[in-house]
Each structure stands twice: as structure tokens, then as C-alpha cells.
């Protein structure tokens, strides 16, 4: 593309985004369905974050399905790339080791990895209070592994441990769901635990627990994908 053509394109893009930004106004009147949810979620589930409340209770079965899809992706990536990672291709390893990361990046990662892991735990645990939840926290947890992979070429992702953790988390989610059938209104009902005080950390029944297990599962799956892709 010629250089001169870039400028009008940029201007056009700017006009489009600018008009969107100028005409943007926060929606003040909710559609009836949303209004029902906004009113119902805090009252019934005790979760200030309506989205997480919906995802982990009313639509929890869908969430389980989404995690299963992610699991299929991880398994597929492992199937496609796993064989290559095992073969000790000398050319491949030599190319990876050609330029080792500098000392600054290595030691920076030493300091940053615990911090990022703490942020991930924070996001997972506060899923029912603020933006975030299992999926987002799991992604940040996997970015921890990405940082390790980038900063330390000698680091090996432990696929076996990750798989065990991932299966365990999945099993615990299903067990919680069954507990919902036995003790409360249905599969994955969060009212097996007391709702607690609105807005506190341990509140909204089983939603924080579910969020933690979901975060562990998603984090493990994404870590496996990252580990498979490095090669």
C-alpha cells in the first residue's frame, strides 16, 4: 500500500471512531430483560456483579460448556504440536537458545511473576464483586506461565501436573453442581452456602468457590496451550 494512501484511510478511521465517541452516551434506561436481571441477581444470588451472577448461576451450564470447549482446544493443540515438542530437533533448540534473554528480563520476571500471580488470584476471588471472574483471572494466571516461558528458556511447562490440576478443578465444579441438585434448587445452584453479607468477600453462596475452580481450570488449559506452542 502506498504511503500516501495511509493518511486518508487514517482520517476516515478517525472520523468513524470520533463520531462513535462523540455520540456515545451511557445507557440510562435498561431493556426489560436486563432490568429484571439487575433487580434479581443481587436479591437472589447476593452478587453485586450481575454478569458473574448470571454466568455462574443462571447460565452456569453454558459456562461449563465453554470451559469444555477450551479443554477441547487445549487437547487439540496438544495432539497437533505435542509430538514435535518431544523430538529433540537440534536445529530447533539451537535457534531458541541462540539469543538468551538478558539478565534484566530474567530477574525482572523473578520479581513480576509472583505479583502477576497475586493479581490473578485477586481477580478470581473478587469475581462476584468487581470486573473479572474465573475466565479473566485464569487468563492472567496463564500469562504468568507466558512470562516464565519468555524469560527463562530452560523453564519446562509441567504438562502432567497441569492436567491433573485441571481435571481436579473440573471434577470439583461438577461436584458443586451436583451438590446444588441435592441441597438447593438445581444443578450448579449457588445457594448451597449462605449468601452472607452483600458486598463482602465471602458472600453470594458458592459463586466465589465456583469462580476459583473455574479460574484454576481455565488457567491450566491456557498454560498447556502456551506450553505446547513454544517448541
Amino acid at each position: 500500500m502506498p504511503r500516501a494512501a495511509v493518511i486518508p484511510l487514517l482520517v476516515a478511521l478517525g472520523v468513524v471512531f470520533g463520531s462513535v465517541a462523540i455520540n456515545y452516551s451511557e445507557r440510562t434506561v435498561l431493556p426489560p430483560l436486563a432490568e429484571a436481571y439487575v433487580e434479581m441477581v443481587p436479591r437472589e444470588l447476593g452478587a453485586p456483579n450481575v454478569i458473574t451472577g448470571i454466568l455462574l448461576n443462571y447460565r452456569a451450564f453454558d459456562t461449563l460448556g465453554e470451559v469444555a470447549v477450551l479443554f477441547m482446544v487445549a487437547a487439540g493443540v496438544g495432539l497437533l504440536l505435542g509430538g514435535r515438542a518431544k523430538t529433540d530437533d537440534p536445529d530447533e533448540t539451537q535457534r531458541t537458545a541462540a539469543v538468551p534473554p538478558s539478565e534484566i528480563v530474567r530477574h525482572g520476571a523473578d520479581i513480576l511473576v509472583p505479583l502477576v500471580a497475586l493479581f490473578a488470584a485477586y481477580i478470581v476471588v473478587h469475581g462476584h464483586l468487581g470486573p473479572g471472574g474465573g475466565f479473566q483471572g485464569g487468563a492472567v494466571a496463564a500469562s504468568c506461565i507466558l512470562l516464565l516461558v519468555l524469560a527463562k528458556p530452560e523453564y519446562r511447562v509441567k504438562f502432567a501436573q497441569l492436567s491433573v490440576m485441571e481435571s481436579l478443578a473440573g471434577l470439583l465444579i461438577v461436584l458443586l453442581g451436583v451438590a446444588g441438585i441435592v441441597f438447593a434448587g438445581g444443578f450448579l445452584d449457588n445457594r448451597i452456602l449462605p449468601l452472607g453479607e452483600f458486598g463482602a468477600l465471602f458472600s453470594a453462596g458458592a459463586i466465589p468457590l465456583l469462580s476459583v475452580f473455574l479460574g484454576a481450570k481455565v488457567g491450566c488449559e491456557l498454560s498447556v496451550i502456551i506450553g505446547r506452542f513454544r517448541a
Partner: peptide
């Protein structure tokens, strides 16, 4: 929270 996570990523 969003700003923090955006910084990390």
C-alpha cells in the same frame, strides 16, 4: 482493576 490487568497484559 481494568487498568491494572491491562498493564500486565
Amino acid at each position: 482493576d481494568v487498568a491494572l490487568v491491562y498493564g500486565v497484559l
